[in-house]
């Protein structure tokens, strides 16, 4: 990341954001991601508002309860929050030049992130077996209000979030490999910061999704 700190283009009389290109680029990209999830989540809010009846948590499935497994997902949320703290600790470690800490915490982040994806895949398999799909099974459609719409919005929102986590895990593996090769130093660790921003953003989106999809 040597070239990242040396501001390209030479000296700046009016030095823009005073942050290096990759970090600025990531923030700009995240602004775009906010709008993408706004499209998905906004559609969900609007559709649900228009639909009226909806499956709620806290009551049995037969009485119109949600078909989603809240406890499992709460555990999964816990995993993702943990991965966020390991990520930020990895960044804090390399800020102090602590190579061992960086590697350990990055490795932890990869494992936790992969586990999140694994549990989500397990959840999907379980739900599809129970007949909860965009095109709901007949039994489920009878007891779950607006089952098809619920399924449509649920899979699109969590699916795209899951895809973001998966991409994040692959990038994280790449960064971890680089970390083990000693690519980051106390002075140069922009890569860790940039992937961290992405990772925390994905975590942040999940915090919102978990609440509005599972708990409300």
């Amino acid at each position: 990341m040597k070239e990242a700190i040396a501001m390209p283009g030479g000296v700046h009389a009016e030095p823009g954001m005073r942050i290096y290109n990759q970090k600025l680029g990531m923030w700009v990209f995240l602004a775009s991601e906010v709008m993408f999830f706004t499209g998905l989540i906004g559609a969900y809010i609007i559709l649900r508002f228009g639909a009226g009846d909806w499956a709620l948590p806290g009551i049995p499935l037969e009485e119109g309860g949600t078909p989603l497994a809240i406890n499992l997902t709460a555990f999964n949320t816990f995993m993702l929050i943990c991965s966020s703290v390991t990520m930020v600790k990895a960044f804090a470690a390399i800020e102090h030049g602590d190579q061992r800490g960086l590697r350990l915490f990055l490795l932890g982040t990869v494992v936790l992130g992969a586990a999140f994806v694994g549990i989500q895949i397990f959840e999907y398999i379980k739900l599809t077996h129970e007949g909860f799909l965009p095109a709901c099974s007949a039994e489920l459609a009878e007891i779950v209000p607006n089952c098809g719409l619920f399924g449509s919005t649920f899979y699109v929102m969590t699916g795209f979030h899951g895809a973001h986590v998966s991409i994040g895990v692959f990038c994280m593996i790449w960064v971890t490999v680089k970390a083990f090769r000693g690519a980051y130093t106390k002075e140069n660790h922009g890569g860790v910061e940039v992937i961290g921003l992405y990772w925390h953003f994905v975590d942040l989106v999940w915090i919102l999704l978990f609440t509005i999809v599972y708990l409300i």
């Binding site: 961290g196 921003l197 942040l204 609440t211």
Partner: peptide
């Protein structure tokens, strides 16, 4: 609560 949590992540982790 969700907004509180999201803000914490953005403020401190990001």
């Amino acid at each position: 609560l969700a907004i509180w949590k999201a803000t914490l992540v953005a403020m401190y982790y990001m």
